[in-house]
Amino acid sequence: MTTILDDQKLSGYSLMQTAIEAVAAFMVARADGKTVSPPRHHVPFDGHGDLVFTIGGVSGDRPLAGFRVYDTFTGNEQTQIVAVWSADDARLKGVVLGERLGAIRTGAIGGVAIRHLSPPDAKVVGLIGSGLQARMQLAAAASVRPIRKAYIYSRDARHRAAFAEDMQAQLGLEVKPVACAKDAAKEADIVICATSSTRPILDMSDLKPGAHINTLGPKTIDAHELGLDVAAAASIIATDSKEQARSYASPFFLQGSRHEQRMVELSDIVAGRTTHRTSSDQTTLFCSVGLAGTEVAVAAAILDSLSGKDA
């Protein structure tokens, strides 16, 4: 019988470490040319929205293949489906329904970036945004660094207060809501931007020297949540998929600049094939765009970890 998981089965944050290791292994395989990760594909349904597909997998001793599909239909809650096959025996390993797997996967990618780009002794996180993505990013940061404190800012004071109370209880960290984005970032070793803002909410003057920044929100020329001076100051600019960044409907916010030419693949950093952080005063930037196939790898790892349990 095919295993089917939903958001309830993936609740909490206990699966984050499993997801991070799955993404790290996928990154090494990507650097070795052993993954399938084409850009996402939009199929429009006129007047309603799109079905968006990401397809990918990994070869090697335990080859995987699969896809994720989600909708942009208006007037309905978004639905996501991830299906995973064991490619060597054509066995359907399982199906995952709901939005939580995607957030875990994105959090895990952010966690891998934090592991390889942030100061090794990073203890303070600044978060801009209080949604599910910000929660997963904080959980991922706490999985790879000795985090002791987090500051949270979002536009709605009730949301940031609820975030602080819940994440403090869930992760055992001190989480403090603050009144502006600058207050969240000024003491942070790691800054996580997970907003829908189309205008920069932070620039370089707001950041602590040597900070690492993960940006998850808008990153197009016409709409970006970070000031371009952050990219200019960054010693390292990494992304999970340069191909996906080039495939944005609206041009990527660094397109055509010298900073785009400096951008490196996170997979090459993970595999030790390109530059990583070498000093405590370096500013580093990770631009998360969504690497196809990682959701398949994470789903497979979670399905394996839950096998034998009441899945």
Rank of each mutant, 00 (worst) to 15 (best):
R277G: 02
G102H: 02
G293I: 03
R258C: 14
L291T: 07
D281M: 06
E187K: 05
G47P: 01
Q170L: 11
R258M: 12
A29N: 03
Y153V: 02
V125Y: 09
A231V: 10
I302G: 09
G227I: 11
A140E: 12
E99G: 14
A185M: 12
I152R: 08
A223Q: 11
R199I: 15
A231F: 10
S154T: 13
R115P: 07
G75K: 03
T283Y: 08
P120W: 08
R273G: 13
A103V: 10
C193V: 14
G210T: 05
D89E: 02
G217Q: 01
K9P: 06
A211L: 04
V36T: 08
T79M: 05
V270Q: 01
A65V: 09
V178H: 03
K149V: 14
Q78C: 05
M27D: 11
R68G: 02
D304H: 15
S305L: 11
T35P: 00
H42G: 04
L226S: 06
I190M: 05
R277F: 04
H41S: 11
G111N: 05
A108N: 00
A233H: 13
H48C: 08
A161W: 05
A164L: 10
G308L: 06
I104F: 00
V175H: 01
N76R: 14
A19P: 01
A194T: 13
A113W: 01
T278S: 14
A188G: 03
M204D: 14
Q8D: 11
T2N: 12
R30D: 03
D310Q: 12
I302S: 06
V52H: 04
R91F: 09
V296M: 04
M167K: 05
S143G: 11
A83N: 08
K9V: 08
K149Q: 15
G126P: 07
L303H: 02
G111D: 03
D166E: 14
